[in-house]
Amino acid sequence: MSLNPNETKPSELRRDFLTALCVGVGGLTALIVAVPVVGFLLGPLLRDTGRKWRAVGPLDKFKTGDTVEVKFEDASPLPWAGVTAETGAWLRRNSQTELIAFSVNCSHLGCPVRWEPAAKLFMCPCHGGVYYSDGSVAGGPPPRGLTQYPVRVRDGNVEILTSPIPIT
């Protein structure tokens, strides 16, 4: 195969056009691939997992004045989630009818707060956040009190509404 000497050289204009064509078509090709990939990666922002009421035990199980940890399943756990499908909350029974559910996440940076029953305080192991029994800030870096989850009693069972991890 040899070059045809009679063949005219492509003009600069044609070269510019071909350059722009290569860049444009290349970019378009990448875009065609990128749209579904990026959409898939951003899926968590587009997917609504909803919220569900989860039973955490019969009302009689919770004594007035006590704060106990309860465990329940997320709103829509993925089949392979295993134990990560579980979440926890602190449930406090203030009276015969009043129940409060607190997030276990410290409002500072989300670490798991512990209820110290003798001290009647929630304490965070990470940066030393402290909360009173009503969830209000008692000391340390938390900018606000513990987040409360909706809680209700249905057919003698205490139910908590699943909620996103509170982001401060």
Partner: peptide
């Protein structure tokens, strides 16, 4: 934050 979790909470997607 939701992208880090892969949802609203720590779970299967995280």
């Amino acid at each position: 934050a939701r992208l880090i979790f892969g949802g609203n909470t720590v779970g299967g997607a995280t």
